[in-house]
Nucleic acid binder design. Structure first.
Lengths: 261, 261
DNA sequence: CGTTTGCTTGAAGTAGGTCAATGTGAGTGG
DNA sequence: CCACTCACATTGACCTACTTCAAGCAAACG
């Protein structure tokens, strides 16, 4: 089991491919720190020099964009177990803020580890590239929802997609899950006013579409919602068939789960 | 000069790092085909098995998302010289269509070349990852504009960003450039009706903000527009400092330009 | 030369925003 | 323990930025 390495990145990557002993040891060696961050604490600030990637061991984080009129917007939600910073590694400086949305633990994987990773463990390089590409697909779906749906659709879509992503880490998650966002923040994520978000949510509740038991939400009509939004879950089918072969022998089975907070 | 290899990917990648002879030869060997595609021809269709990446040697392409009510949306514009398919390599099947927006030439880089690339040329692997990450940043800016700006802002932002990206390939491009999109298509890209796009454009013209000489557009007040939109050009600062060292000796200087159509 | 594709313009309707006020639980300091 | 604050949810009245519908034109194209 990969657990003997106490490495967040190991358990994250194991979800996609079976890591070899060499691979696990290499990653675990670089990722020694494990830091507790409180809600609201910045993980990456705009203008920061890029510092490698960060694994979110527990808790949630978000990517925010701020405009000078004081409004800010949520462009991306990171769930426990996800890798932060893949969008940044191409740039010298960060374009957007990353902030903890709840208390949580993060594990920095320093940038000096990236070159050896690409050199000695090409399969892991391919894997990072692929994870980045899945991120991009998710972002496309988000942009698509912002550009083409009405308010109801955007909100439904956002909740559906959150649930689907939580289920990746937590197989068999039902229709009830935690949404650690205020209505203001939900508005910032879906591009609506908090007050209209409120009206929509209340409407959903009256309709019997959802139950709210803050901060939990239960989707009572997920099927019909998924039809409404033409929702497809893009988080299921990573294709690893083209990857380079592994270095060393495979030891870890896939799936150790990360508990949702 | 990298030109002796007649490879699109070589000239694209040379823009970011100086490639070695080994690297050039390897890429050029895999990328032999060069296909002429007409406007409207699909490059990737939804559900297609992922087939490696494609370099757009000349012409423009777009990523489209279609909904069942017949509407479609433009999520991404690919300019001459750009790499198509980095968002897809993580998935087994394509989620979105890619279609030629003008006539052009494409060069497929087969997926079977990816594993050797990551194994033998780790620096190229890192480079592909970085290009994917820049794509993602651009997409974030787009999503941000869709989610937070009013119609005027979205349209200004889209034009500014198009100009900025064209300038990457065509240093010293002024404020006049080709926009090979109908107003309907512009609407699909910025999330507005074609008819409102029309009204905005006519307004810009009357204001003296732009000149239109179809299909060319000239931005007469770029500076003040960039202030309005808090526009930052994210396409300038790829950070290659963390890359693994090159295999073989460096031979190519950076920058051979790809002509805009 | 007729047909299609795209641009232009106007009139009318509405989804969603703004403004404003009230309610409510969770701290927090006295 | 209460009083005060603060962040968040709720609700209503009004307003406008954008859409929809409809019609006329110009250029491109078989």
């Amino acid at each position: 089991m990969s657990d003997k390495y106490h490495s967040c990145l190991v358990s994250r990557l194991s979800r996609f491919v079976s890591l070899t002993d060499h691979e696990c040891a290499f990653i675990a060696d670089l990722e020694k720190e494990e830091l507790a961050y409180r809600k609201g604490r910045p993980v990456v600030s705009v203008g920061d020099a890029t510092e490698g990637i960060v694994v979110l061991k527990s808790g949630w984080a978000v990517v925010k964009a701020d405009s000078s009129d004081g409004r800010s917007q949520i462009l991306r939600v990171y769930l426990p177990g996800e890798v932060i910073g893949l969008a940044e590694i191409g740039s010298a400086h960060a374009n957007h803020r990353v902030v903890m949305q709840t208390d949580g633990m993060i594990c920095p994987f320093p940038r000096k580890g990236l070159a050896p990773l690409f050199i000695d463990y090409p399969r892991l390089g391919a894997l990072l590239t692929s994870i980045g590409s899945l991120d991009q697909i998710a972002l496309r779906h988000h942009a698509s929802s912002l550009g083409s749906m009405d308010a109801t659709g955007k909100l439904k879509f956002w909740l559906l997609q959150l649930r689907a992503r939580l289920e990746v880490a937590n197989v068999g998650l039902g229709n009830r899950f935690r949404v650690p966002f205020s209505q203001v923040e939900i508005g910032q994520a879906v591009g609506l006013t908090s007050i209209y978000v409120n009206k929509l949510l209340r409407g959903f509740v009256e309709n019997g579409d959802i139950e709210i038991d803050r901060p939990y939400v239960r989707l009572l009509k997920r099927d019909s919602w998924e039809k409404d939004c033409e929702f497809v879950n893009p988080f299921v089918d990573m294709d690893t068939s083209w990857f380079p072969p592994a270095i060393g022998q495979e030891v870890t089975g896939a799936t150790d789960l990360v508990e949702p907070v």
